Computed example of a mutant assay.
Amino acid sequence: MDEETFERVRAVVESIPNGRVLSYGDVAALAGLRSARLVGRILSEDGADVPWHRVLRSDGTVATHLREQQLTRLRAEGVLADRDRVPMRRYRWSPAP
């Protein structure tokens, strides 16, 4: 995987506003990638300094192994989960075309 791909994903994640979220698939589409899993891999390898917590599964659930940390960060930004699921219709960010 090349550095340009990493940077495109990081740029999309950095652009998600406070209090908003995207799915891994949304990030992939905006970064010009076909794979949501690739976004997850990139964030796990090189995402500590970007707002990774704003990226969720398509159903609004959070990363299992980072559940408490991710939900805490989202709550601090005003994103409220119903149990462990963020209502995507309410919080999904729609970037301007």
Rank of each mutant, 00 (worst) to 15 (best):
E4T: 10
E4K: 13
E4R: 07
T5L: 13
R8H: 04
R8C: 03
R10H: 05
A11Y: 00
A11L: 05
S15Y: 00
S15T: 02
N18M: 08
R20L: 02
V21Q: 08
S23E: 12
S23Y: 10
G25R: 12
D26E: 15
V27Y: 06
A28D: 12
A28R: 08
A31Y: 02
A31F: 00
G32Q: 11
G32K: 06
R34L: 10
A36P: 11
R37V: 06
L38N: 07
L38A: 12
V39C: 01
R41W: 07
L43F: 08
L43W: 02
S44M: 03
S44N: 09
D49A: 09
P51R: 07
W52T: 04
H53F: 15
L56D: 10
R57D: 08
S58P: 06
D59S: 09
D59H: 06
V62W: 09
A63S: 12
T64G: 05
T64L: 10
H65A: 15
H65G: 14
L66W: 07
L66I: 03
R67H: 09
R67L: 11
R67S: 15
R67I: 02
E68H: 14
L71Q: 11
T72R: 15
T72A: 15
R73E: 13
L74Y: 04
R75N: 08
R75Q: 14
A76Q: 13
E77F: 00
E77G: 05
G78I: 01
A81Y: 02
R83P: 00
D84P: 00
D84A: 08
R85N: 07
P87A: 04
M88N: 06
R90Q: 12
Y91G: 09
R92W: 05
R92F: 01
S94Q: 14
S94C: 01
P95T: 00
P95I: 00
P97E: 10
